[in-house]
C-alpha cells in the first residue's frame, strides 16, 4: 500500500487518539503526581483529572474541550511523497475530524476573529517538516490548547545573565502564569539559536516524552534542577497550592551568536496531548506514543 493511502486511512484515527487519550508517559506521570501530592485541594484536582481521563477514554470524548490548534510534526525519511500531497491529506483529515469526533472549531482570523468552523485557516494547521535518512515516515499530531499556549514566552537574555538568568526567567514565567496553564504543567525550553529557533526548540522539547532526559549530561542536569526548583515553589495543581507544579522540564539547545542568549519557554497543560505514528517502507505501522493503540 502506498504511504499516501496509509495516511489517508490512518490520520483520522491518529487525531482521535491524540484528543481522547493521553500518551502513556503523561498518564503515568499524573498517577505518580497523585502519590506525591500532599494537599487536599491538590489531591482532589488530580483525582478529577484522572477520572476525566477514564471517562474520555471509555466514552471516546475529547479529554478537554479546548482541542486547540492541531500542529503536525513530520519526519520524512526514505519515502516518496510530496509536501502538497501530505498537506492535502492533513487538511482533509482535520476538517473531517472537526465534524466527526467532533473537536471544537477553534481557528479564527486573527483580526476579524471570524471562525472558519473547520479548524483550517491561513497557514493553519501548520506543518513542521524534518528530513532524515531513516527507513520510515513519522507523523506527530500535537493539539495545543490556548490556556497553556498563551503563557509561552520568549526572552533575549544577555550573555552575562547566563544560566542563572535562564533559571530565573523560567521560574518567574511559571509563577506569573499561576493556575492559568492548568498545572501540573510540562515545560519545554529552547536555549540558544535565534529568536524563532529558541521557540521552535521549546516545542521540540515539549514533544519529547516525560521521564526522558536530554542525552547530554550537563543539559539533563539543568532539566532536573529546574524541575525541583519549580516544584519547590509549591504553586501546586491548578495553581491552588501543593507540591506538584510541573510533571517535567525538557530542554533542547542550539549554538548561538556570541552576543546573544535566546530563551524560548513553551508551556504545556497537564493534558499533554500528542500521538505519534511511524510508517515503515514495508507499510508496517507503529504507534510510539500509546502502547495500547492500534497495530
Amino acid at each position: 500500500m502506498s504511504l499516501k493511502k496509509i495516511l489517508e486511512d490512518e490520520l483520522d484515527d491518529l487525531i482521535k487518539l491524540a484528543v481522547t487519550e493521553l500518551p502513556d508517559d503523561v498518564e503515568q506521570a499524573l498517577k505518580n503526581a497523585l502519590k506525591h501530592e500532599k494537599t487536599e485541594i491538590g489531591k482532589m484536582n488530580l483525582r478529577i483529572i484522572l477520572e476525566n481521563l477514564e471517562i474520555a477514554k471509555t466514552k471516546s470524548l475529547p479529554i478537554c474541550q479546548d482541542t486547540g490548534i492541531l500542529n503536525f510534526f513530520i519526519k520524512i525519511g526514505k519515502c516518496s511523497i510530496s509536501y502538497d500531497e501530505i498537506y492535502k491529506i492533513i487538511k482533509n483529515a482535520v476538517k473531517r475530524s472537526t465534524k466527526n469526533i467532533p473537536i471544537r472549531p477553534s481557528v479564527v482570523d486573527p483580526l476579524s476573529r471570524k471562525n472558519t468552523n473547520n479548524n483550517v485557516g491561513e497557514k493553519i494547521p501548520h506543518l513542521y517538516v524534518d528530513f532524515n535518512s531513516e527507513p520510515y515516515f513519522e507523523i506527530t499530531v500535537f493539539p495545543k490548547g490556548a490556556g497553556s499556549e498563551n503563557m509561552c514566552k520568549m526572552f533575549m537574555l544577555t550573555p552575562h545573565e547566563g544560566l542563572m538568568g535562564i533559571k530565573k526567567s523560567v521560574i518567574e514565567t511559571v509563577i506569573e502564569s499561576g493556575g492559568k496553564p492548568c498545572p501540573p504543567i510540562k515545560i519545554g525550553i529552547g536555549i540558544g539559536g535565534s529568536s524563532e529557533l529558541a521557540m521552535k526548540l521549546s516545542k521540540d522539547a515539549l514533544l519529547r516524552p516525560l521521564g526522558k532526559n536530554h542525552p547530554v549530561q550537563r543539559i539533563a542536569s539543568i532539566e532536573n534542577k529546574l524541575l525541583k526548583m519549580i516544584n519547590d515553589t509549591e504553586l501546586g495543581p491548578m495553581g491552588l497550592g501543593g507540591f506538584v507544579t510541573a510533571l517535567g522540564v525538557n530542554i533542547e539547545y542550539a549554538s548561538c551568536h556570541t552576543a546573544s542568549l535566546p530563551l524560548g519557554i513553551g508551556m504545556q497543560c497537564w493534558a499533554d496531548r500528542r500521538a505519534t505514528m511511524r510508517v515503515y517502507e514495508s507499510g508496517k505501522i507503529k504507534y510510539l506514543s500509546h502502547r495500547r493503540a492500534g497495530h
Binding site: I48, N52, I55, A56, P62, I63, C182, M238
Partner: peptide
C-alpha cells in the same frame, strides 16, 4: 469558584 481545568469529559456527566 474554581473547577479543575481540562476536564471537559468529566463535566459532561
Amino acid at each position: 469558584c474554581s473547577f479543575t481545568g481540562g476536564t471537559g469529559a468529566y463535566v459532561t456527566q
